[in-house]
């Protein structure tokens, strides 16, 4: 391609940049540590990405509808603490639906504020991040929550069990991804999510009830958070109040990494799954090459910036803006 102009190359790099960077990472990590691509490690990465992944599925709906959800991390802490507490009080069979109901209420509340009252989603969910954290602490009295009889409960199956040799968290992630992927890509509701995020005014002018669509996206996100909380609680059968802290950024990083635009209107569930895996492998690789765990907080930030930059660069067709 001798005739490729500078702009073409810029556009190509911007479009494929994430995958190229990912490939470089994989090659580098594999050279640095041959265990990186071993089946055990790969399975481990997917398994530990499942909770993040499940949350990212819901946030994908919110982001495509043109909004943000920064509350999912603290909401996941809430779900985990609530289901663990209720497990011993009313038994797992009632604890799970009760926790789902409470989490969905939180999602519905956010959806009401952003959808029907048209409040800015960044402010609403940033506020909810803090408010739900307070709610969780109030609920637990600040204590860690533990199941008393850790050996004798079937509740452990969601986080620790496996079927057909595949860990249950992975199964849940895959099945939920398939279900939500179909809802987003194939149903009338999914279509309206894209329309509302692409151009909310035009959606309204086409008779779409924009507020309702936004509302449902947040309920969907809360549902995913509840599933993630269930897996988390089941995996450890005990938890701190801050178990989901900071996950909102990882989730957002995965969604953007997958290529959903922060401006709304684009993205798919499949791409989000790819984003989740990329993030998981990069964080795992950094650990394997011996970097401290804490480095990954910085790395997550770098990945978000990189992904947002490339998204914008792909739109304007070059990496740098010549204005400013």
């Amino acid at each position: 391609m001798a005739s490729m102009s500078k702009a073409d190359i810029g556009r190509f790099l911007a479009r494929q940049g994430i995958l190229i960077a990912f490939a470089v990472f994989i090659i580098g990590f594999t050279l640095a540590n041959e265990r990186f691509l071993s089946p055990d490690n790969v399975m481990g990465v997917v398994r530990s990405s499942a909770i993040l992944g499940v949350m990212a599925l819901g946030v994908t709906f919110v982001v495509i509808s043109g909004n943000l959800d920064l509350s999912v991390g603290s909401m996941m802490s809430f779900s985990t603490i609530v289901v663990l507490d209720l497990h011993d009080k009313i038994g797992p069979a009632l604890a799970i639906p009760a926790m789902f109901a409470m989490t969905l209420c939180l999602g519905a509340f956010i959806g009401f504020l952003v959808g029907y009252l048209k409040l800015n989603s960044l402010i609403v969910t940033l506020g909810m991040l803090s408010a739900i954290h307070g709610l969780t602490l109030t609920y637990s009295g600040g204590q860690n929550m533990d199941i008393v009889d850790k050996e004798g409960t079937w509740f452990a199956v969601f986080g620790q069990g496996s079927a057909l040799g595949i860990p249950v968290p992975i199964l849940i992630f895959v099945l939920l991804a398939a279900l939500l992927g179909i809802i987003l890509a194939k149903t009338p509701f999914g279509r309206t999510v894209y329309a509302v995020g692409g151009n909310g005014t035009a959606a309204t002018f086409s008779g779409i009830k924009r507020a309702r669509v936004v509302f449902l996206c947040y309920v969907m996100s809360a549902f995913c958070v509840a599933v993630a909380g269930l897996i988390q609680a089941s995996r450890s059968l005990g938890s701190q109040n801050t178990v989901g802290q900071g996950l909102e950024l990882d989730v957002l990083a995965a969604v953007i990494l997958g290529g959903a635009s922060l401006l709304g209107g684009s993205g798919t569930i499949f791409k989000t799954v790819i984003g989740v895996l990329i993030l998981g492998f990069i964080q795992n690789g950094l650990l394997l090459v011996g970097l401290q765990f804490y480095v990954q907080f910085v790395v997550t930030w770098v990945i978000i910036i990189l992904a947002v930059w490339l998204d914008i660069a792909a739109k304007r067709g070059k990496l740098w803006s010549n204005i400013a």
């Binding site: 194939k186 009338p188 894209y194 329309a195 692409g198 151009n199 086409s206």
Partner: peptide, 26 residues
Amino acid sequence: GLVLGMNCRDNMTLPQVGDLSSGPFV
């Protein structure tokens, strides 16, 4: 009038996408 990032067909059928379904799918 339009969702510019959407394709031609989906823009045209947007107001009736809820009615144009077979089972739960578009």
